[in-house]
Design a protein around this nucleic acid. Structure first.
Lengths: 135, 135
DNA sequence: TACGATGTTCGACGAACTACGAAATTGGCG
DNA sequence: CGCCAATTTCGTAGTTCGTCGAACATCGTA
């Protein structure tokens, strides 16, 4: 089969109003994906292969797909690289305060800034914990 | 053997500090369980068999177990009935604003007060929709 | 063109999940 | 005591999940 026939599927992302709460909750109920979201929250964008998680590339790809289809992240292609970013604005519009609250909750469980997958990415300076605790 | 030999396991509930975010998120990522939590949030307590969900009793029992072990609800035994209640105070202490935010988010998706599993239970008086957006 | 780097898709596998029916347990009542 | 009501536990069926390895696709570069 010619290598040019297979066009990229164009990375389907759900529209903001299409984001499903159950999908989001399910996506967030996995440690690996939660780590990805946390890292992404401290940085505007990041290439798939640079995340501090130790799973096989195929597994990681699977997780990104789950995250993307749930509406939590968006992915942009640049050359042979794929950059992921948290859809903070869309999430905030669809489910106000949800991301902040969940992430803040995770921070309390011990998954804080210096947990195990620390955002060593480079900056990691300010944990950016400006979470809007309702308390 | 006397039927009194089999003592009730005493319904294990996780301590407040033991409540795991992933368990909570996973528990909430199921429609049936979300419905249970929503109903429970409008009422202080309710018997297991009186929930507006259409699944077999055994299945319902399973969901209650998941909910209880995740720390979302507590169960109290009275005669041959088991009453469930949302652990609002514990949840609020463990993960401030989480329950409110998630429930408010679900309300936005169309699972509002009069969705499909309406609180026909009988009272359903005050919906208590004081959804506090942590915004 | 060949090669290496980055990622995805496919197929498989074991574990966990959801669902159900049947049986068992417990308490209230005639 | 015998029976019904409320629930749980057990066993099972089918599905979904998380993970991996192997193969494939794309881009940049030698």
């Amino acid at each position: 089969m010619p290598r040019s026939t297979r066009r990229r599927p164009a990375l389907a992302h759900p529209a903001t109003e299409e984001i499903d709460l159950f999908d989001v909750l399910h996506a967030l109920s996995d440690p690996t994906r939660m780590t990805i979201v946390r890292v992404l929250r401290a940085e505007p964008e990041r290439a798939c292969g640079t995340f501090p998680v130790d799973v096989a590339p195929s597994t990681l790809s699977h997780h990104f797909k789950v995250l993307r289809e749930s509406g939590l992240i968006s992915q942009r292609e640049e050359a042979n690289r794929r950059f992921s970013a948290l859809r903070t604005v869309d999430l905030e519009q669809r489910f106000p305060g949800l991301l902040d609250t969940v992430l803040a909750a995770h921070g309390r469980t011990g998954g804080g800034p210096g947990c195990r997958d620390g955002e060593d990415g480079g900056r990691g300076g300010g944990p950016g914990m400006r979470g809007g605790e309702a308390g």
